[in-house]
Structures are given as C-alpha cells and as structure tokens.
Design a protein around this nucleic acid. Sequence first.
DNA 1: CTTACCTCCTGCCCGC
DNA 2: TGCGGGCAGGAGGTAA
Length: 272
Amino acid sequence: MPELAEVETVVRTLEHQLGQVTIKACQVLYPRMVEADFAQRIINHTIQGYSRHGKYLIFDLGDLTWITHLRMEGKFYIQNPEEEISKHVHIILTLDNGLQLRYHDTRKFGRMYLYEPQSDVLAYPCMKNIGYDLFDERLDVTYLKNKLLNKKTTLKQVLLDQSIIAGIGNIYSDEIAFALKLHPETKINVLTDDDLAKLIEVSRDILSRAIECGGTTIRSYTSSLGVDGRFQLSLKVHTRQNLPCFNCNTIIKKIVVGGRGTYYCEFCQIKK
DNA sequence: CTTACCTCCTGCCCGC
DNA sequence: TGCGGGCAGGAGGTAA
C-alpha cells in the first residue's frame, strides 16, 4: 500500500541508484499492465528526471513521460540480468549500465502509462480525477472548501479521495484523523475553516515525518529496492486494534468506513 | 452532480 | 493435511 511517503521514498531511491540511464530493451510479461505499444515506445529513451504526484511516479524521458501507479503492492527492483526472475515480475527494463529495472507486483493492480510531455502534471489523462498533491502550495482552505462543496461524506473518505488531496492512503488517513482528535466518521460538512487549515497542516506534518523515516513498512509492503521504512514505529492507531491508546490507554477500535479498515481511539477522537 | 457497490488479483489466515 | 471462504485495499467503472 504505497502512499505518498512510500512513493517519495521510491522516487528518491531510484534517482540515487540509477540516475540518468538509458532503456535498451523492454519485456512485458503481463500485457494488461500497459498499452500494447509500451515496450517499443519506451526503448532507447533516457530517464532524465524522477518525480511524483500523489501516489504516481513520474519519469521524465525527454520527449516522453512515463507514469507508474504502484497501487497495492507494486515495487521496483534493480537486479543483474542473471538473477532469477520472480513470478511476480511483470515488466523488465534492460538498462545501458548493465542492470535491469524490474517491476514486481503480486496482485497485478499497478499500471504504467506513456504520454507526450505536458507542462502541467494534472493534464495527463491518468490524472483526470486527481487533485493537488498534499504538498502543492495551491492546496489551501479555499481550495478544500470548493472541493468539499455539497459533500456529505466522512472525514476518512475525504482524506482518501484522490480527487481532493492526492497522496493519502489508508494508513495515513487513520493517523491524520487521530492527530486531529476527530472520529474518522465525522461528517466533513461540520468542519470549520480552522479545522480544514489544521487538517492540511497535520497531514503535511505526518507525511513529512513519514518521508524522513523512508515510509511505513507493514504487511507485505516494503518500499522496494531492499529499503524498509521505519514509520510503522511511529503509528499511533493504524494496525493497533485491541492495543491501548498511547494518550489515554483506551483500547483502539477497528471499524469499517467507506469499505476500509479504520483504526481509531473512541476516547481521543470525538465525532464533531 | 452525488454515493454505494463491484471488479481487478493474489496471498494469507481461519475454521472445519 | 488440505481445502474453501473471507479478507486485504487503490482506484476505475457502473448503477442508483
């Protein structure tokens, strides 16, 4: 479940370990992951830049932009061509430095896209329903209020809605609700401007700290490339069902909100 | 326009 | 020991 912090870690690690490399060959082992002409289009392109928007990885290939969404379990590995190929590797890029960049995805939910470069990332078709990145400076209370107009859903569902804020997933949405001392099922339309300002501030603070830790490693998810995050050690509620709240010792509850497993402290987090 | 539910896909865990 | 069912969830699609 790579969210903003895990994707940022992947971007930084790939940039550090690969830098400017040219793709000399491309094997697609699971065709549903890409368009039919993906392999022939991407070869002989050089990765000139690495960036991110929300949970999307963006590779600048000069006259082409390669965008990848890791969804639940996607990861990249840098390996020697002689190394055994896992059955969960679906795309293999052979690089001019003699190594291979391999895309591994147990559940095959990830997707890759190739586009003509655009100056505005939101102009790419895969970003059609994507809002500002959490760290985009244009994301402010005015923007949020506009996006939340007529919305009657809950805080948790808003935090997870990529068309409003891009980058927050199930782990961090629970942590943000806890830091706000708000019940995840709090109706979004009862929040004041001050609450929304706080929501932005707290979200950025938590995700910044998660990035510093190299993301969160829970369940089967490691950020790839042998890099494990450490933010799971800082989680206050997520995955802590039946354990005492760090603030008040109340037992952390797990409920379902918008179809997602949701952890919260019923004493610390009020339904406003 | 909204929200609710299904689908994709595999591994893991539980109960029998 | 083995097997079936349920669960995990990001996001796109469809239905209401």
